[in-house]
Simulated assay, not measured.
Amino acid sequence: MKQARVPTEAEFRRLVAVASQGRHGPRNRAVLMLSYLAGLRVGEIAALQWGDLLDSEDKVREQLRLSAAVTKGGHARVVFMNTRLRREVEQFRSGLSVPPLSSQPVLITQKRTSFSANTLCQLMRSWYDQAGLDGGSSHSGRRWFITRLAHSGISPKAIMMLAGHRHLSTTQRYIDVNDEMMRAAVEVL
């Protein structure tokens, strides 16, 4: 099975620009940031409610807990949200016409319903197509997240935990390597 494309930094910026256009641009940008900056799966993003992202004081959480019911492996996990992602979530929330209730879904379709994982997957695929990024999919952000951590020297065990994987071999399959990275690697010697 062919793996989802891992965009370059320039391709990622182009993708964000494409997805951010139009009436649903802020929502779409939030989707990409949750995928790329937290490594969330499309089903996990679709299942998010505002109470998952906001604490009792309406501040964006530094970490969110995903219940076993929404994760692929059926194991609850903690997702850490960096400063950039917390700013993105706050920016998205501040642009809403009505402050959200904690029980409301974070993402609402144009029909005013919550997204299914499949519908969100199709929407994300359309952004890659519009941006001219063949091979991109809803899993590209997750692969980008894991690859970036690996190439930044983060411990494989930490990456495995952040990805919510049970085995390091699973995490290793997500890491993308290209000629530029291999050239830089041998220059270290």
Rank of each mutant, 00 (worst) to 15 (best):
L37P: 04
L37W: 13
L37I: 00
A38D: 05
A38Q: 08
G39N: 05
G39A: 04
G39Q: 08
G39F: 11
G39T: 06
L40V: 06
L40I: 06
L40P: 05
L40Y: 15
L40A: 01
R41A: 01
R41L: 11
V42W: 10
G43S: 09
G43L: 04
G43C: 10
G43T: 03
E44K: 09
E44T: 00
I45S: 07
I45M: 13
A46W: 15
A46I: 03
A46K: 08
A46N: 06
A47N: 05
A47H: 08
A47C: 02
L48S: 09
L48W: 15
L48V: 10
Q49H: 15
Q49Y: 13
Q49A: 11
Q49K: 15
Q49T: 15
W50E: 05
W50V: 03
G51H: 13
G51V: 05
G51L: 11
G51E: 13
G51N: 10
D52I: 04
D52T: 12
D52H: 15
L53P: 05
L53H: 06
L53Y: 14
L53I: 12
L54S: 02
L54I: 01
L54C: 06
L54D: 01
L54Y: 07
D55C: 01
D55M: 06
D55Y: 09
S56N: 10
S56K: 14
S56C: 07
S56F: 11
E57L: 06
E57R: 12
E57T: 09
E57N: 12
E57C: 04
E57D: 14
D58Q: 12
D58V: 02
D58E: 11
D58R: 15
D58G: 01
K59W: 14
K59M: 13
K59G: 02
K59V: 03
K59I: 03
K59E: 08
K59F: 14
V60Q: 05
V60I: 14
V60R: 12
R61Y: 12
R61G: 04
E62N: 12
E62A: 07
E62I: 04
E62F: 08
Q63K: 12
L64P: 01
R65C: 02
R65Y: 15
R65V: 09
R65F: 15
R65H: 15
R65A: 01
L66D: 06
L66Q: 04
L66N: 08
L66M: 04
L66F: 11
L66K: 07
S67N: 02
S67D: 05
S67T: 12
A68D: 00
A68S: 02
A69G: 00
A69H: 11
A69M: 06
A69P: 00
A69K: 09
A69T: 12
V70P: 00
V70K: 07
V70W: 14
V70Y: 10
